[in-house]
Amino acid sequence: MKRIGGNFLFGILILLFGLALLINNLGIMDISIGSIISTWWPLFVIAGGLSLLLNHGSKGEVLSGIFILFLGVAFLLGNLEIWNINLSFVFKLFWPTMLILIGVSFLTGKRGSGKSNYAIMGGVERNKEAWTLDETGFVAFMGGIELNFKYAEIPEGETAIDLTAIMGGIEIRVPKDIDVECKGSVILGGLELLSRSTGGLIASTSSSQKGTGDSKKKLTFYCRAIMGGIEIKSID
């Protein structure tokens, strides 16, 4: 089945609003654009939810799509005065649930066995000069981390590396000649792991790379993005 992109759904809505504006400006019909926007803006939220549901890559994206779709429909029904839903109760449940999920994500999953490096409202860069991979945990809290493993001294065998981005970003570059495996989860953020990407309220994905060389080295990344983003790309 062909994937239906979110751009397609949003394009249809923008096209319809444009046609309404054109008809109004030509005097063919007297359409209140302001009234249309104030009433029907939840359609964009609904389109976002449908896009996740139609193109989901994980169970997490399905849950995100359902939640966003529910919010869009609730706002639309309220604007149409068909059904007034008390959304304040929904949000009272939403944030505690997010905090619980964040706590669970920290308590579960594998970790690197080495020491950790933190970028707190600052930055860590290792992308121009040779460096030794003696730290297997990297945390970006309202900061940024850039690591280029092309210049890293990587031990033979498998090395597990834990990446956590909280309201921050982590950019990783890995050479194509070594094996790489990526596993990640995201809460209110985004992941781009080699050939796969995901994002939303709650989502998860995984990706891998078979090295082009004869290297016995392997990097395994365990990624966690919370209101932040992690990107892992393969380079020559």
Results as ranks from 00 to 15, higher is better:
S185N: 15
M142Y: 09
I172F: 00
A152N: 02
G169V: 07
I145K: 06
I178E: 09
F141E: 11
E129K: 11
V180N: 01
W131N: 06
A140K: 02
I172K: 00
E156T: 03
A152M: 04
K183M: 14
R126D: 13
G157R: 03
T136Q: 09
V139M: 14
S185V: 14
E156L: 04
T136C: 13
A160Y: 15
E158W: 08
T205K: 08
G144D: 09
R173L: 13
S204D: 14
G168F: 02
P155H: 10
N127A: 15
E129T: 15
T136H: 07
L193Q: 01
E171P: 00
L201F: 11
L194K: 04
L193P: 01
I178S: 03
G184Q: 02
G137H: 00
I166H: 08
I145G: 01
L193A: 11
E181G: 11
G189I: 05
C182W: 03
A203W: 02
V139L: 14
T159N: 11
I145Y: 04
L194H: 08
E153D: 12
I202P: 08
R196N: 15
P175N: 09
G190F: 01
K128G: 07
S197A: 14
I154R: 05
I178M: 00
S204G: 04
L201C: 06
A140L: 04
V180S: 00
L133E: 08
G169F: 05
D177F: 06
D134E: 06
A165V: 06
G200Q: 03
L147Q: 09
S195I: 07
L188D: 07
W131M: 03
S195E: 14
G169Q: 09
K183L: 14
M142C: 06
D177W: 10
T198L: 02
I178V: 10
S204A: 15
D162V: 04
E158S: 10
S195H: 15
T136E: 02
F141P: 11
E153L: 12
T164P: 04
K183P: 08
E181H: 12
N127L: 11
R196A: 13
R126C: 12
R173N: 14
G168Y: 03
V139A: 05
A130N: 12
P175C: 08
F138P: 06
N148T: 09
I178P: 01
E129R: 15
V186S: 07
N127C: 12
T132W: 03
G144M: 14
G190S: 13
W131D: 00
I166A: 13
G143Y: 01
E192Y: 11
Y151G: 00
M142Q: 12
I178L: 02
W131G: 06
E129N: 13
E156P: 01
R126E: 11
G168H: 01
T198V: 01
R173P: 07
E156K: 06
I172D: 03
V139R: 13
E158H: 05
